[in-house]
Amino acid sequence: MNPLAVIGRVVISALGETGRLSVFTWRGLSHVVRPPFYWRLIAQQMLRIGYFSLPVVALTAFFTGGVLALQIYHGSDQFNSESIVATIVALGITRELGPVLGGLMVAGRASAAIAAELGTMRVTEQIDALTTLATNPFKYLVVPRIIAAMVTLPLLVFVGDVLGIFGGFVVGTQSLDFNAGVYIKTTSDFLELEDITSGMIKSAVFGLIIAMLGCYHGFNSKGGAQGVGRATTNAVVASSILILASNYVMTSLFFSS
């Protein structure tokens, strides 16, 4: 087989996929701002996507903060390490690690769950049934998930920020013998509101990515159980990669000046 033809086919199919995803995202977002709104479903999705992800995100952030403190301490020349550890933990968690790791954890949980649920609804004709009951599947299924993910992810990440910094604080004061007061003071001196808000803005975008890719792959799944399985895997892989890529773009935008 001609290798150029293979490359060509791969590129074309990737472009086609990007195009379809863009159209899907556009359709989803256009419905977000138009009534009717299904408040009940939005609340339900907030519970599922946000609240039930809380333990995972909290634990991830806590241990990440702790391990960060250890590494920075052993990596630095011990001189002045107290303030270095506190600063880097605070900035690292709020700017990058909190949103990114939180986003990845929720991608694993929520994106997969969304793709599996909607995929099953697709292959069992439940999405068709919605249409025949005069209900727009985009409004009923996609919009509540977008809104729920975009609202709850920043909140989750905020909790993650607090716990991540606390993880660094615990390790610092308990095993590195830092002074608790100095640690807290350094953290609050160096941490600025922007560090926290930039992370929360990032995580809202991650929320959109998670909901969108879960819905997209679920909606387009076909072929029974195997198809739903494939949709689930694709949703997690694609949303994780997009989270990392978009994070890079946003970091370079936010922190370039």
């Binding site: 069992t124 068709d128 025949t132």
Partner: peptide
Amino acid sequence: LTKFGMLFQNAALFDSLAVWENVAFGLIQG
């Protein structure tokens, strides 16, 4: 489509909703 009612060959019931909510779906949402 609000004029239509459709019975699917394999029923296509919403499995996340109770039976009565399935039946009432068109009334509540539509």
